[in-house]
Write a protein that binds this DNA or RNA. Sequence first.
DNA 1: TCGATCCTGTAG
DNA 2: CTACAGGATCGA
Length: 265
Amino acid sequence: MPELPEVEAVCKKLRKEAVGGVIAEAFVLRPGSVKPQYPADLDNAVAKTILKLERRGKNILLHLSGGLALRVHLRMTGNLFIIPDARFHSAQVRVYFRFRDGRGLVFEDTRALGRVTIHEETALDGLMEKIGIEPLSKGFTAAKLQSMAKKSRKPAKIFLMDQQHIAGIGNMYAAEALFRAHINPKQPIQAVTKRKIEALHKAILDVLRKAMKDAVRSYSKPGSYQQMDFAVYCRKAKPCNVCKQAIARIVQGGRSTYYCPACQR
DNA sequence: TCGATCCTGTAG
DNA sequence: CTACAGGATCGA
């Protein structure tokens, strides 16, 4: 489930507990979770201190001493958190680090689609260059969105989910933002009117900020993501809150898209 | 830009 | 049993 707000919530919680931690040992319980690297590469984290933790799009970056950084991507079902004793971790944990003080930094991931990789800081910069603008940053203005939209012929929904344009928006919040802005997900983003692009800009901010509050709240208990009240997402055939028309489900880029055919023309 | 792929779990 | 799940990447 994690999109930007959920990943941000994970980071907030983790930052307090993990920064300053010294890694004593790395354990790869599922080799696939560290691909395309070798499990042994994570051993390079041993004896390093976690200096700083940040989020970039949906990536969690743990900067270590010695010019290295861990990159964690939660994908669909991942979660990253601290446990008091590294020895007592759940069966779903794919990778974990034991701190010198005995605590565990664990990467739990039911579907095992997520990844934990280690990089030289310089190499990481290269990877992160491809990630688009942070939607909650100052630079993300309606004008900026407009200028990006003008250059893309992608359907609006696909455009929003493309991490190279805007970082951190996934399937749920893309659908919700488009609904609020009355934009048809199939419409080429290029062809969306300036007025609607402005509405979309506001919708993105509103949806993400709202979800951020929910996500932070829900993280008092680890392991579960809060869901906001969705207007269209996962509401196939249910009546639209605004016009009572049945919410439609279509497939775009192999993913479900939910929208109101009446409100989003 | 489409489809396959990486995985497991759950709902119908 | 099949369909579907909030993501990203790769090759055709």
